[in-house]
Simulated assay, not measured.
Amino acid sequence: MALDISLLHAVVAVAKAGGFREAARMTGSNASRLSDAVRRAEQQLGVRLFNRTTRTVMLTEAGRVLMTRLLPAMNEVDAALDALNTFRDTPGGTLRLNVPVSAARLVLPAIVPGFLQRYPDIRLEVVAESNVQDIFREGCDAGIRYDDHLEQDMVALPIGPRVQRFAAAAAPGYLAAQGIPQHPRELMQHRCLYGRYATGVVAEWEFTRGEETVRLQPQGPLICSIGSAMELTVSAAVAGAGIVYLFEEWLKPALDNGSLQPVLPEWWQHFSGLWLYYNDRRLIPAPLQAFLDYVRELNARAN
């Protein structure tokens, strides 16, 4: 039975994503086009592949049988097409990275422009989020994480600065009115601007000087979701609303121009940098291999 391979790709995308909207996001298509492709595939095959409701899209028994045989074959097709990259002057295709918001803001801007300039046929898609997710569940080829979030059976490659710091800061006007803390515990008497993870857990503020480490549960008038919403805490701090605690590089522009003043800098805590990780047991697609090689080149220049 002949069937347009593009229809099979649509069926596989929807099955992997568990829905039309998510499949559209992952493939750069749109939900209505994928829905039409699946409908046409079902018509040509003469069987229903998905049970659809207003909220869910589930494989039927026939759909599950098809996926069992089809997925390995489609992976082989993708591998065969990717192998053609060896005959191109520059590799092409899509590279999907799953990264924390901090990486997208603080590390990737120094890497991505040069990478895209060198490899103009590669389309880079960055999924930035504050929650740690399985990178392959999101359909991504590789992920960027801090070392405590590395998954098992992954190969890790250093990416970006190897040492970072958390920094506390406030507007000069706020500190003039409320006083400058001399010890981290004094922050409990100040208006703190802080973050909360999607799990509901409030991020601790941690400070270290010598052998002494102080961990605090901040209290204050503004709580933002960890991630891109933390920019609001920076803006509020610049406006004099309280003390912010964030990556030093994130606060650096405001610290450099004087709109924020360092608080307890001798207590700022160092931590190790980010890692790019991937599963080398899988076929490494040409766009990912190009990115790995580019990051290794930047690492060699930095050393």
Rank of each mutant, 00 (worst) to 15 (best):
V132Y: 12
Q269R: 15
V38E: 06
L264N: 07
T53M: 05
V244A: 06
Q117D: 13
L157S: 08
G210W: 00
L97V: 01
L251N: 00
G92Y: 00
H9V: 14
E204F: 11
G19W: 11
D148G: 05
G18R: 03
R25G: 08
D4R: 15
T53R: 09
T54N: 12
R55W: 13
F166D: 11
E138Q: 15
E211C: 08
A237P: 01
D293M: 10
L45D: 05
V57D: 02
V127S: 11
V38A: 00
V202T: 15
L71Y: 09
V47K: 04
I284Y: 09
T208Q: 15
R25Y: 12
A254P: 05
R105N: 09
Y197Q: 15
S228N: 13
T213C: 11
L84E: 14
L116M: 15
M154R: 15
T208I: 12
G46N: 04
N30G: 00
S228I: 15
Q43C: 05
G179D: 00
R40K: 13
P181Q: 00
L264A: 04
A83F: 08
G273W: 06
S235F: 14
Q189M: 11
R40Y: 10
L193I: 12
L255W: 00
Q164W: 14
D256L: 12
S235P: 05
S35W: 09
A41T: 08
L276D: 02
A79V: 03
R118G: 05
A13W: 06
F20R: 05
C224T: 15
L70Q: 09
Q261V: 09
G92C: 05
D82I: 04
R21K: 14
R145C: 08
G200H: 11
T199I: 06
A128G: 07
Y146A: 14
R145G: 06
A80P: 02
A110M: 12
G28K: 06
A176W: 03
Q117C: 07
L7F: 10
H190D: 06
Q152P: 11
W275P: 03
Y194S: 01
P100G: 01
V38Q: 01
A290M: 11
G200M: 07
Y278W: 14
R145L: 10
W275C: 13
N279Q: 10
L116T: 11
R48D: 11
D134Q: 10
V47D: 04
T27F: 01
F207I: 03
V99F: 02
F115D: 05
N85P: 07
A17R: 08
E206F: 08
Y194W: 10
P262S: 04
S102P: 04
G92K: 03
P113T: 08
R123A: 10
P285Q: 14
A169D: 01
R145K: 09
Q43V: 11
G242D: 10
V126Q: 00
P109E: 08
R33S: 14
E151F: 12
R96C: 07
L292Q: 08
V38R: 01
T233N: 15
S35M: 08
R281I: 10
R123G: 03
G210M: 00
I243L: 01
S102D: 07
A80Y: 12
A176K: 12
L222R: 07
T68H: 11
E248K: 13
T233A: 13
A83K: 10
L3M: 14
P218N: 04
V155D: 09
G240H: 00
A236C: 12
F50A: 01
A73L: 14
A79N: 09
A83M: 05
V14F: 04
E266I: 07
G139N: 02
T199K: 05
R55S: 13
